[in-house]
Amino acid sequence: MIQPHGGNIHDYPNTLDFSANINPLGMPDSVHEAIVSSVSQCNHYPDPYCKQIRSKMSALLHFPEDQIVFGNGAADLIYRIVHALRPKHALICAPGFSEYSHALQEVHCEIHEHFLSSESDFILDRSIFNDFTNEIEMIVLCSPNNPTGQLISQSLLRDISEYCRLHYITLLLDESFLSFVISGSSNSLLPYIHEHCIILNSFTKMYAIPGIRIGYALCGSNYIASKLQQTGQYWAVSIPAQAAAYAALDETDYAVKTALYIASEREFMTKELSNHGIRVFPSSANYLLIYYESDFAEAMLKQSILIRDCQNYHGLSNQYYRIAIRLHDDNLALISAIKRYQNG
């Protein structure tokens, strides 16, 4: 059975999990301590507006506090954004994160897809402008894209943002994996944000807290932020999640250390996988998209290694897989498993 997402260790216990794109360095000590310390406050309701984190993030990003909205993970905010704005026609890229289309389907939006090509390593280029038809009300992009790991160039991002400004189109950019890129902030939409933009991000991946759900949206206008805040459940972010995020905002050195580590291990894994006859697509993220034999995921599972079978992504076949970058010893274990598989 093909899983809709990675990280399904509940059905496959005692496996080495390469299917979930979580920071291999683990949760920072300060974040762990903040979560534990917050438990004593859990007899109270959480702040529905996450005011302490909003204030801290506003100061760090030099971004208006009342235009920041927190949610129960980035996925929660995807649904809240779509339900708040209810576009009738939206454009997404394929392959891409499935929750974009699932959320749009909930509001009966007609989904248009821009297909990325393996021949160009799934890089988004200016051909996307051919799909900017008059009926499009929302464009959803991801940089680095999931599952390809490809960044959107700053020049293209700037031009898409300007097009959306001139044509009153909502631009939603998911930057949940951008912090894994060295100097990732230089690839953000933030310099080009305007009243029709929303930047989505998550604490889950970088700070290794997928069980503590918290993400945020930087909204280009008070109007969008207000609509988003009023959509979805009232107490969306738990007390432990808010405490974790507040502590994580101080972990700038940890994020830099992670990006450097990921770059080094990604280069190592790209070389090793390629040396074993596996096609590896260029990536800037903490995962690699590969193309190999159709039974590869099952073969790895027999060796207690879980990878992400990508055949349920639109635009990909049953020979595409996504592999997370893990600790070096784990990465070596995967390479050893591949050698055993290839040697019969």
Rank of each mutant, 00 (worst) to 15 (best):
I325R: 03
A337G: 00
S283Y: 06
N318Y: 01
D309C: 02
C109Y: 02
E110Q: 14
H108F: 14
E175F: 08
Y234H: 07
H194P: 09
E137R: 04
E272I: 07
Y192R: 04
I212W: 13
P4M: 08
Y291H: 13
G6C: 08
P144I: 07
Y341E: 07
F296T: 01
K339D: 14
E33K: 15
H328S: 00
E195F: 07
E195D: 08
S238I: 12
S40G: 06
G220C: 07
G73V: 08
E265P: 08
L157R: 02
Q105L: 11
A245M: 06
N286K: 07
A75G: 10
Q3F: 14
S58G: 05
E113T: 14
E110G: 08
C50T: 13
G184S: 05
G220H: 06
Y168K: 15
R165T: 06
R54T: 12
C42Q: 04
L189H: 10
D329Q: 12
Q105R: 14
R279F: 12
I152G: 01
S283Q: 02
R86G: 01
T204L: 14
S143Y: 05
P24H: 04
I81N: 07
L173I: 13
N187R: 15
N275K: 11
R213P: 05
N201M: 13
S176H: 10
S226K: 10
F97K: 10
I323H: 02
Y287L: 01
V181H: 06
M138L: 09
V256L: 15
Y246R: 01
A324E: 13
H167C: 02
F97G: 07
Q105A: 14
K302E: 12
T231N: 01
I224A: 04
S98G: 09
